[in-house]
Simulated assay, not measured.
Amino acid sequence: MKVEDIEKYLEENYTKLAEGCKRCIRGEKLVLFITGLCESSCYYCPLSEKRRKKDVIYANERLITSVDEAIEEAKLCSSTGVGITGGNPLLKVDRTLKYLKALKNEFDDFHSHLYTTENLKEDDVKKLKDYLDELRIHPTKYFNKKVDEKYLDNLVKKIEIAKKYVDSVGVEIPSIPGMEKEILKLAKKIDGVADFLNMNELEFSDTNYNELIKRGFYPKDDVSNAIKGSEETAFYVINNFDGDMFIHFCPSVLKDAIQMKNRLIRRAENIAKNYEIITDEGLLLRGEMIFDNIDDLEEIKEILEEYEIDYEIDNNKIYLNPFILEDIIEEMKKQRFPIKFSAYITERYPTSDGLEVERIPLITKKLRFRRRR
């Protein structure tokens, strides 16, 4: 799907979406990865090596070890809710409760949803009942064997158990090409019990690539991680389902071009320095000057202060507005300043790691300006 098609789809179906989906789309959800531990080994699991089967905690892209860090990240992103994921968060239910309780107590109208498997235990869900607004169950074994009624009956029972304590309970699955009949059978079985069915576009990652190729799946084009046929399977199910339950398809472009962008913009607005420019994609642009000689840096610093230009010094670097940097370089060329330095415009994510996306050189250290006599 193209971005414009997604926007039209959202406009037509927005009111039907689960509340967790709405806040995700708006970029308002803190993604709290509570643990990488999981009792299942789904062949399509996209988790990275840093997270898969590792007992680690991430708040968005940030590795954390405390509740305070999770709260800080939520504030930096202006989050209005949290999506708790893993692994399986219920394998660390006390930790999940600790973080969930702290976030709900810290913020007003803070929506929470949690992902787990069909192996959920009633006591675990009961522990979370005062702090959990939405539960999404992933039937992990559903795609590893042929569907049988006994398995589906057990899934229905687990949904009914969860509904005793959580207002909104749904099922979330990947849209696997070739499994249209099985997904329709699942949808029919949970219709009237579950509040929704979410289907995610199946995607390649570094860790699931070999398993997916082994099963005959391939990328749908040269620029996407999405798998060929996944979108078609999802819409076949949507168009052929005759029940009352709402079925939502989440394509990879929705996560990348809309959800992620909105979250990045919210974080960028909170952390951007006065000299940084926020792009339409939520990335940060800044100018960067790198000096070998600290005396040269001090001379440039005096010029910036004289003209009341915002800047920041980091060891032998000066950060400043990228457009002002371009003007400064042009002026220095005219006046032939005897200063040797490198200059770049950099574009980076507003995330905790500040990952640099692009570095555009303006000048290099090979070029040296001489002061005009």
Rank of each mutant, 00 (worst) to 15 (best):
K334Y: 15
H138Y: 03
K334Q: 13
L97Y: 15
G83K: 10
K301G: 00
I137H: 01
V125I: 15
V193W: 04
K158A: 10
L355H: 14
F235L: 07
K164H: 12
K261L: 00
C250D: 10
Y275P: 08
S205H: 10
I363M: 09
S205Y: 08
L320D: 07
N321R: 07
N225A: 15
G83F: 10
V171A: 08
T207R: 09
L254D: 04
D94M: 06
F143G: 08
H111V: 07
A59D: 02
C38R: 10
L103K: 02
L90Q: 13
K340N: 15
K29W: 02
G83I: 10
N208L: 04
D296R: 00
S230D: 08
S352R: 07
K141F: 08
S78G: 07
K158D: 09
F204A: 01
K126L: 05
A343V: 11
K92N: 13
K2P: 01
P46G: 05
L63A: 04
H111N: 06
A272W: 05
C21K: 06
K121E: 14
E203W: 00
D221M: 02
I318T: 06
E298A: 01
L325P: 09
D5S: 02
T207N: 10
E106P: 00
D296H: 12
P338F: 12
Y43H: 14
E4S: 10
C42D: 09
M1S: 08
D123C: 00
E312M: 09
T233Q: 10
L32H: 04
A102E: 00
K228Y: 14
N60S: 05
P350W: 09
A257Q: 11
N239E: 15
Y43C: 11
F204T: 02
R368M: 12
P322M: 08
A102D: 01
M260H: 06
I303K: 08
V357Y: 14
N210T: 10
E288A: 12
E305T: 01
L76H: 02
I25V: 12
Y151P: 11
V169L: 12
E356G: 08
A18R: 11
H111E: 03
D327R: 14
D133Q: 00
I329R: 10
K98I: 04
K366W: 02
L297N: 01
L297M: 06
V67F: 00
N262K: 03
E72P: 02
E308N: 13
P361A: 09
H138A: 01
E231S: 13
K150R: 14
P251T: 12
E11H: 10
R368V: 15
T80S: 13
R215T: 02
G170S: 13
N13M: 01
I227K: 05
Y209V: 07
I265S: 04
R348F: 03
F143H: 11
C77I: 09
G229K: 05
V166T: 10
I363G: 00
L37W: 07
I318F: 06
K220E: 14
R23E: 13
R95W: 07
L320M: 15
Y319E: 08
